[in-house]
Design a protein around this nucleic acid. Structure first.
Lengths: 250, 250
DNA sequence: GCGCGACTTTGATCAGGATCAAACCGGAGT
DNA sequence: ACTCCGGTTTGATCCTGATCAAAGTCGCGC
């Protein structure tokens, strides 16, 4: 049993068998480029709650999230913190061409990352355009999401913020399981109330209250503290403040 | 006089004489690559207040800001709006590989942009890595700034937001004039109170009140509505809530 | 079972900004 | 000179979300 397990893990460490190979920074690489990547990569794991990098630290590697979730966040001297991104499988950590990390990276759940030593990775970037072009595409996507998040942080009410977060997690969860979001679907919240508060620019008490309010309003149902059921996606979307793309489609 | 003027403008339209050539997306191009760019580029101008692109519009070009300032913003159905970026000279507008614009772009001041038809530009990107690598670098920088802005929007007080904005404009203004920011320096606010409010996630009344409060506190002095004098940069930085980089340096 | 600690909910009160409303300022046009 | 008008300031009040405080829930080790 132990051996079988080790074998299974070892298999996913090979690029051709990698669960994120179609979305990660290496997604456009040719087989021979992957072989080269194999040589400079190594896996690391972190337990939930462990720091991956502190802001200001020297970074000797860049990495892709393979499994689990990490958070990217900033803290002011007086302790106020703002999460500025959630890193999901296939997301990229670090920045070629930069010495030190601009933000804290912390494992939210148990986390596995595929690391590349920075120097060889940078050399490989200039040699193989497939990596740079994929990284550009990913970075542009992240910039768009960051800007959408700015609207949420600057202009949405607490209730809209919570509804937006739930809607996003619902969509992501559905796409992970490879089916479209559907009324009655359910999922587990990957974040504590405090982490949600840090992400949404609220306090944990307000998060808790607004979740209770959405439950009272019948927009969501709770099964324990963490499991959420969405009886009607339309009702949830109505609470986000976003324009209703669904209406436009049908 | 008229002819002389036209000559001066014509000169700046040539790449080798371009005021943003060392910072824009074309900064790393070789002379022959610039010659190729010359062929697919054209200038456009907009008056202050004019829209450049509406969110959702089909974009037939990408562009670099040459002179003036543009804003990038989002609006909710009920009219709440959030500015998600300020585009200054050398900043890039648009996104290769994307059909429609994700955000509104509006000229804040009179604006000149250097446009490239999207199709030829995209073709050139795959042919010449200098463009893609520079665009990647610029996009990574913008992502970092967007994330810093998320901390401001999510966690800073109104007073800290105003002080942060003034400090940023002061730094940018100094670097534009090629000298380091200095106590007693002054600059013109390029934004109306309303535009500042949209950028900072506040109302225009709060912006006005906090500017008055900073004046009353001696942190800034006003000369008319738009001109700001900074008697002490240290005092201003103390109000931003950011850690004081200056202290670390000396 | 018990107690402990991490996480969550709920309550009471406070305050920072939003909202509503009115007045003010300064430049452009007549 | 005058009005007009966009931009700005200031005042009064309201309300959302923060803060302070206490109790509730759940899983876990003993």
């Amino acid at each position: 049993m132990k051996m079988k397990m080790d074998k299974a893990i070892a298999d996913t460490k090979e690029c051709w068998n990698c669960p994120i190979k179609h979305r990660a920074v290496c997604a456009r690489c040719e087989p021979e480029e992957l072989t080269h990547l194999e040589e400079i990569k190594y896996y690391r794991t972190y337990e939930a709650g462990q720091p991956v990098i502190w802001a200001g630290d020297h970074m000797e590697f860049v990495a892709s999230v393979v499994t689990g979730i990490a958070s990217l966040s900033q803290t002011m001297e007086d302790g106020r913190t703002q999460m500025v991104g959630l890193l999901l499988p296939s997301d990229f950590i670090g920045r070629p061409g930069r010495e030190s990390a601009p933000f804290d990276v912390v494992a939210v759940s148990d986390l596995t990352v595929c690391c590349f030593r920075k120097k060889p990775f940078e050399e490989m970037m200039v040699a193989t355009p497939h990596i740079g072009s994929r990284l550009l595409e990913m970075t542009l996507d992240e910039l768009d999401s960051a800007r959408e998040w700015m609207l949420l942080l600057g202009r949405k009410t607490a209730r809209e913020k919570i509804a937006s977060l739930l809607a996003i997690i619902a969509r992501r969860d559905a796409s992970l399981k490879r089916h479209t979001p559907k009324d009655g679907m359910s999922f587990d919240l990957p974040l504590t109330r405090e982490a949600m508060a840090d992400y949404l620019g609220l306090t944990l008490e307000t998060v808790s209250r607004q979740i209770s309010a959405l439950k009272k309003g019948g927009v969501i149902e709770l099964d324990g503290k963490r499991r959420v059921v969405i009886p009607s996606l339309e009702a949830l979307n109505d609470e986000t403040g976003d324009d209703h793309e669904d209406d436009l489609i049908h």
